[in-house]
């Protein structure tokens, strides 16, 4: 047996975290991306910049601030304590929140690009065909931005699987609870267990390659009007 039970638990945890993060981000990111794509508000710039911050920030910075705000003296920490939930750092829920912030731009930006590529015309056409705004979103916008949703899902999932700094800052290193694959690799290397590190690292390499392969193959879909 090359992968230990702890390794397998780390893999399972990474996949669960990535899947949940992707689902949450599609729910949260779609309205944000729609607003960013359609708005003429002056807030478009600032909001867009905030969403894109994780692209340039060291993950430790994001992790640090999340740790502080979710900790016992932070705003969110006080709220969750008052609700009887305890504090979020060093829990799976805490990791999930961190991942949602960390992977946000990887979901919002492809969606925003897809929505912008559709333009005004299909929405106007739908309105002249008696479709209300919600109807239009589900019957015209969603199908026409399908490739954007595929890209966003793949990138959001893969990026969450690959996160390290935020997890380390927020989750510590609790086996089966907050120890993801990337942290597990780090642990193996620290303990000079290079063979195990190779198996996980190689697995990540192959996984990432196939994710990108899937991504570039899906680019064949072209949204728009005929």
């Amino acid at each position: 047996m090359t992968l230990s039970a702890v390794d397998l638990a780390a893999i399972r945890l990474s996949l669960e975290l990535a899947a949940l993060t992707t689902v949450l981000l599609l729910l949260i990111g779609t309205p944000i991306a729609w607003w960013l794509a359609r708005t003429r508000s002056r807030l478009k710039g600032p909001v867009g910049a905030v969403v894109a911050l994780p692209l340039v920030l060291p993950p430790t910075v994001l992790g640090f601030y999340l740790l502080v705000t979710m900790g016992p003296h932070g705003v969110i920490g006080k709220l969750t304590t008052a609700m009887g939930l305890g504090t979020l750092p060093f829990t799976f829920a805490g990791l999930l929140i961190g991942s949602v912030f960390y992977s946000m731009p990887f979901v919002v930006q492809p969606l925003q690009n897809a929505f912008e590529a559709i333009g005004d015309r299909p929405l106007e056409v739908a309105a002249t065909l008696r479709a209300g705004p919600w109807d239009t979103f589900f019957t015209v916008v969603l199908p026409l931005s399908r490739s954007g949703f595929i890209t966003a899902s793949i990138l959001g999932f893969a990026h969450t699987v690959g996160e390290f700094g935020v997890v380390l800052m927020l989750g510590g290193n609790i086996p089966g609870k907050t120890r993801t694959v990337s942290v597990q690799i780090f642990d193996h290397v620290e303990s000079m267990e290079y063979a195990q590190a190779h198996w996980l690292a190689g697995g990540m390499l192959v996984f990432s390659f196939f994710v990108l392969l899937a991504l570039y193959s899906s680019r064949r879909f072209k949204p728009g009007l005929g």
């Binding site: 106007e124 056409v125 739908a126 209300g132 109807d135 026409l144 949204p223 728009g224 009007l225 005929g226």
Partner: peptide
């Protein structure tokens, strides 16, 4: 009255059929 509640038909200048 919003466009989708006006009983009108509109044909745009360029092709505007739903591609999907």
């Amino acid at each position: 009255v919003p466009t989708h509640k006006r009983a009108l038909g509109y044909v745009f200048q360029e092709a505007s059929l739903f591609a999907h």
